[in-house]
Design a protein around this nucleic acid. Sequence first.
DNA 1: TATAGCAGTTACCTAAAAGTAAGCACTATG
DNA 2: CATAGTGCTTACTTTTAGGTAACTGCTATA
Lengths: 118, 118
Amino acid sequence: MSKTSDKTQHGKCLSQMLPVRDALDVISGKWKMMILISIIHGNKRFREIERSIPKITSKVLAKELKDLEEHQLIKRTIYDDYPVLIEYTTTEYVKSLEKVMKQLHIWGVNHRKKMFGK
Amino acid sequence: MSKTSDKTQHGKCLSQMLPVRDALDVISGKWKMMILISIIHGNKRFREIERSIPKITSKVLAKELKDLEEHQLIKRTIYDDYPVLIEYTTTEYVKSLEKVMKQLHIWGVNHRKKMFGK
DNA sequence: TATAGCAGTTACCTAAAAGTAAGCACTATG
DNA sequence: CATAGTGCTTACTTTTAGGTAACTGCTATA
């Protein structure tokens, strides 16, 4: 195989890599997927989400919720009754992530089995 | 809905979250998936992989290759001829990640479209 | 004999992510 | 009237990821 054909391979390779990295930029980190899953499961209120995720702090949660909102995966709704009520819900767009989530879940279960005995 | 039933929900929720996080612990970060993709595409030698990934440095590459080896996704083979030749190849186990990779790729392409105009 | 390639390592530095702890203005409950 | 809950924010510290640059011992090439 010549060096020239290697270079062509590298080009192809990049077009695989970059979108994968784009995706990971959005969903990676310790908390984002956990928060999304919590909301998908029906948790709506800030404290409710906070309690559903062990060890998360309000500071981190607040920041991550903003990020997820920017990425249009969740929306924040203010119900201006007394007392003011705020709800986080998923958007339609979150559905596009379901397959990714599913595969991550399957692989995670399997990997844990592989790593620390079945 | 009672507070008791909420607590049951949170339990269910965790069993979804934890495997997803396990998976992300292995594949997240700026470089791991790019390195895997490079090797899958046929790059085998250290410098070859390095050149196939823009902006990566040898220090980071060396460290990430060790991590991937620990997770049994790649193997490092030493051919003790002259000069000593070292090759990185994927393991069988990497195949289990293919669906995850595929979904990340699909979602990444789509997300980029959504974010900065089609 | 100088230069470049091989597969990394080393020491140092910066930036980003995350943790710690407290507090705010408000309401609801005992 | 104290206590606890609401949805956060602020200031500060620690931890981790990643970047910079130089350098090693080896071989191959010009």
